[in-house]
Amino acid sequence: MIDNSPIRTFIAHLVLVLGILIVAFPIYYTFVASTHSLQTILRPPLPLLPGDRFVENYSEALFGGVGRIGGVSVATLLFNTTVVALGIAIGKIIISLLSAYAIVFFRFPLRMTFFWLIFITLMLPVEVRILPTYKVMVDFGLIDTYAGLIVPLIASATATLLFRQFFLTIPGELVEAARVDGAGPWRFFWDILLPLSRTNIAALFVILFIYGWTQYLWPLLVTNRNDMNTIVIALRKMISFADADTEWHLVMVTSMLAIVPPILVVVLMQRWFVRGLVDTEK
């Protein structure tokens, strides 16, 4: 290791601490705000330390039913968001595993056509086909349903490509050994392929869970009823900057509750997440 001079190391730490301040401060300050009363928040500057209203604010938001979004409790919103995030993550993983398995381990007519059909969806994000997709949802009666929030988002070229790439690294001899050992396609899938894909699945799960949790445009379109909102959409509805009657302390609590679950997932599963992120984009 070269260039280890104490001054340089000190500068490096200094820059990093500054970076952390920028990165973490908005989140920390939201937490601080969530523990103060509305009156304190409305009279800036806000103190840098948490206040004494933690219990009151959080219990009011969780169980009280927040006024601006039609009396829906934050617990309902959290439940909706969890269902959506899990549904998208698990659904995507399952259908991508299956299609990648078919494309890599079988030879059949139209195989490459299917591969390209899936691949090209990379180029068709929701944003470029908003209206017609919305119309499909209406025609299927999927507005304000969990299926409507989840199903259209689980077709993913990225996950399929990742699994395909990983499957291609599995030596052919392993498949042959399994066949000689009496394993058919399903047994091979369950006994060998799935266990070998564990880390990939874990990594992808983190990324897709975040993806599902942070969706905005899609839930905005397909939910009208307040009790079907995800927490991100509900937050947007709670805020009115022009009005003075935004209940900021509750908004801050809701923000915290919207931020903490995905942060926990990312931090606790950091090892898989970092690997998965860097791998997915290869």
């Binding site: 030596p171 001899e173 392993l174 042959e176 399994a178 000689v180 050992d181 047994r187 060998i192």
Partner: peptide, 26 residues
């Protein structure tokens, strides 16, 4: 028949015991 492969083709996620038992279980 049983086969021994050039790169052994051992199932990397299974213990030696399970590698040997897999074909019998199937």
């Amino acid at each position: 028949i049983a086969m021994v492969f050039q790169n052994y083709a051992l199932y990397p996620h299974m213990k030696v015991y399970d590698n040997m038992a897999y074909g019998l279980r199937n």
